[in-house]
Design a protein around this nucleic acid. Sequence first.
DNA 1: AACCTTATTGCAATGCATTGCGATAGACTA
DNA 2: TAGTCTATCGCAATGCATTGCAATAAGGTT
Lengths: 164, 164
Amino acid sequence: MHCNKVSRILPGMKPTPDPQGSLATRLQAAVQGRGQRWTEQRQLIADVLAASDGHATGAELVERVRAADPSATPSTVYRTLDLLEELGFASHHHGVDGRETYHLEEVLAHGHLHCQGCGAEVELDAAAAKPILAAIERVTGYAADLDHLSLQGRCPSCRAAAAR
Amino acid sequence: MHCNKVSRILPGMKPTPDPQGSLATRLQAAVQGRGQRWTEQRQLIADVLAASDGHATGAELVERVRAADPSATPSTVYRTLDLLEELGFASHHHGVDGRETYHLEEVLAHGHLHCQGCGAEVELDAAAAKPILAAIERVTGYAADLDHLSLQGRCPSCRAAAAR
DNA sequence: AACCTTATTGCAATGCATTGCGATAGACTA
DNA sequence: TAGTCTATCGCAATGCATTGCAATAAGGTT
């Protein structure tokens, strides 16, 4: 399974935004530190993900990686994304349609808000989400993962339209 | 697309838990009211969904329906589930693994909480979720859809373990 | 340099969900 | 009852994500 791996990220294991080493360097160190290898393909996949720094679905990433290196296969791409996720350098969440969307942790962790009326998709940064996460913790005791927070509902303008 | 159809459910269109007509009767009325047809297969699919009143993934529902009527195909099952959803009688959300989980609206709308540590999955009823939805509205203006609320994080005991 | 161990990769197959299309069958009209 | 319109269904194909397995390549050891 794919998602369960996320749970292996323990507090403190997340990469500290180190002004020193580049992303690639830090990635390499993290991977090799686990007795694993830093390959060209992994480098490429990380580059592609970094280049599409907003969000990209798994399929999009596969496509872009294959554009740069046709020998790369989907399995390798997905496995590498899993790896990056285990290491806390990337994360993914499931969009409205259940498809995966990946992004680098570099981009501050954030949640997603989807309007069922107009389809608008807005992001929720850590500061904005704070009260929400606090409410969740108060009610449930859970420390919710902002990055997997994918809310659906109706945006203010659609609510106004519906109330009319 | 699948999910977008949910947005067609307007406030007030949801079926009121009417002690009169059975679920089947109300469904039939709703479907025929739209100039559509109430078929045996649809009846069967609704029955199966009602029988698995907790939650069931799309694949599970397909399997159960086919057990009762081998002539039914996945496409029919999924299309019917979409229909039930459009009518507000059912809903689905995407679990941690991105797979779909359906349930009848009969079962009170509720959210889901998944612990990334131990995998525990707990439900969140409307009352418990109220403060959370309120916080979301305060911060974002969005009226979040409780039913699509699928949170991930760490449960209290896993948090305690991690803090150790 | 030859060797061993193990991570990584590509390939092919699988599963779930979705969609287009032609065939069928239901409902309604005359 | 015959005829028309259109919703529904089954089939086959497609797309995305995942996994098992065998071949390969990388890294370290002697």
